[in-house]
Simulated assay, not measured.
Amino acid sequence: MTTVARHPMTPAVPPQLIQDIYTRDEVELLTDIVRNNGPWRLVAAHHFKNAEEYLAVSGAKSRDAETPLQLSDLLTPTFRSYLGDGGIVYEPAAHDLYYNRKFMDMIKGIHGAEFAIPSSYLFNIRTPAHSFDAGHFDGASWRGVSMNNAPLWLVSVMAKSGLFERWEVKTGQVIAYFYDSDVDGGFTYWPDGPDMPPQRFAAPFWNSGLLTNNEKMFHRGEANGPRDRRTIPKLQLDSVITGDGDGWVVRNGDEDIARYDDADMRMLFHYSAYVFNDRSEVKAYLDHTDDLTVEQAIGMLVSDVRARGVSIEDPSDPLNDPAFMATLTSVYAMAPSEYPDVAPLDIPRPAR
C-alpha cells in the first residue's frame, strides 16, 4: 500500500464560515480603537525591507528575471496594528477580548487540543485596493523559533520545507470581516494545497468571517472597493492611515495623498491562539526543554538543499544575505497557480 505524503501547506480542517462574531458593543469598541488611535502603518512596513523578502512569503513560482520588481511595485494600501501579542495586551480597552474564552475554545476544537493561550490579535484596515497577493500563509511558530526572533521570510521558507513539524506550535484563527459590499472583496483559499483548485467565500461580510488554520493554508484577501479608486499613485512604504472625521485619510508625512469614506473600506480583526494537546506539550513550550534554534534551522535547511543536489554556500549573515535568501526561496518555491474566474490575481506593473 502506497502512502501519499500530506502537503505541508494543508490545514488541520478546512475553514468554517461563522456569523455574529462580536457583540454590538464589542464591534463599537474595536472600531473606536482603529478610528481614534492611529496613525497606522502598512502591513508591508511591519515585515519587509525589499522585494525578495516579500516574494519569499508571497509570489508566483517563477517570474521574469529581466523585469525586476521593487517593493513599491508590490505595495497595496493595507494598514495594520496589533491589539495584543505574545500574551501581552497592547490596547487596554481590548483586554477582555484578547483573553477570549469563546475564541480559544473554538481554536482548540480545530485540533482537538486541551489547552490554549492567546498569541497575536491584530487588525487590518484597507482602502480600495488591488490584490497583488498570489496567495500566502500566516507566519508559523515552532518551539524556539517564531517571528519574534526570525524574519518572516525565513519562517515562511521553514514552513514550506516541512522539515520542522517536530517543533511545531499548533495555532488557529478567528477572523472577523467588515466589508458591506459585493464589489469583489472575498476570501480565496487553497484547503488541499496550492497545487489544487481554490475555494472562496464571497463578500459581503459584516461581523462574519472564518474559523481557520491559516498558518497551514495558502489564502488571499481579494481586491476590494470601487475599481476606479484602487491605486494610490503616491503610496510608499512609510505611508500611514488615520481616522479623520467620518472617513479616513492616507498621508505621507504632512501630505494627504488619498481620502475615503467608511463605505469604501474593508476591515478585519484577526485573533490567533496557540493550542496544546496536553500538559506535556505545554511544559515543553514553557520550559524550553526541546527548543529549535535559528542556527539549527538554517543548518537543517542548508543540509536539505544540498541533499537535493543544489549548490548553496554557508552565508556569513544568513538572515540578511540576498543570495542565500533567493536560493532558499527558489528551492522551496510553491504558490497557487489557479484563481477563481471572479477573483483573478492582479499583476503589478514595474515602475519605469
Rank of each mutant, 00 (worst) to 15 (best):
V4Q: 15
R6S: 12
R6V: 15
H7E: 10
Q16L: 09
D20G: 10
I21S: 02
Y22Q: 01
R24W: 10
E26C: 07
D32K: 13
I33Y: 10
N36V: 04
P39K: 10
W40C: 07
W40E: 07
H47F: 15
K49V: 06
K49M: 08
E53W: 06
A56V: 04
A60I: 03
R63M: 13
D64P: 00
D64T: 08
A65N: 10
E66V: 06
P68H: 09
P68V: 03
T76S: 11
P77R: 04
P77T: 06
T78E: 05
F79Q: 03
R80V: 02
E91G: 04
H95A: 12
Y98D: 00
K102Q: 12
M104E: 00
D105A: 11
I107D: 02
H111F: 07
E114R: 12
S119H: 14
I125Q: 09
S131N: 12
S131M: 05
D133Q: 08
D133T: 10
D133E: 12
G135Q: 00
H136G: 00
S141T: 09
R143G: 06
G144A: 14
V145S: 02
V145F: 05
A150L: 13
A150G: 14
S156H: 08
V157N: 01
M158C: 12
L163D: 08
E165H: 10
W167Q: 13
G172V: 01
Y179I: 00
D180P: 04
D184M: 03
G186W: 02
Y189M: 03
Y189E: 00
P191Q: 09
P191H: 06
D192S: 13
D192L: 07
G193W: 01
D195K: 05
M196H: 14
P198M: 08
R200T: 07
A203R: 04
P204L: 09
F205K: 00
S208M: 08
G209M: 00
T212Q: 03
T212Y: 01
N213Q: 13
E215C: 05
R220D: 01
N224W: 01
P226F: 09
D228Q: 14
R230I: 06
T231L: 14
T231E: 14
T231P: 08
T231C: 09
D238R: 15
D238A: 13
S239A: 14
S239I: 11
G243H: 11
G245V: 06
N252Q: 13
D256Q: 15
D256M: 12
A258Q: 09
A258T: 03
R259W: 11
D262E: 15
A263N: 05
A263V: 09
F269L: 06
H270L: 05
Y271Q: 02
S272K: 07
Y274I: 02
V275K: 02
R279I: 11
R279C: 07
E281Q: 15
E281M: 14
Y285M: 07
D290G: 11
L292D: 11
V294W: 04
Q296D: 15
M300I: 07
V302L: 04
V305S: 08
R306Y: 12
S311R: 12
S311A: 15
S316D: 13
P318D: 06
L319K: 12
P322F: 04
A323E: 15
F324C: 02
A326Q: 15
L328F: 06
Y332G: 04
M334V: 08
M334G: 04
S337M: 13
D341R: 12
V342E: 13
V342Y: 06
A343T: 05
A351C: 08
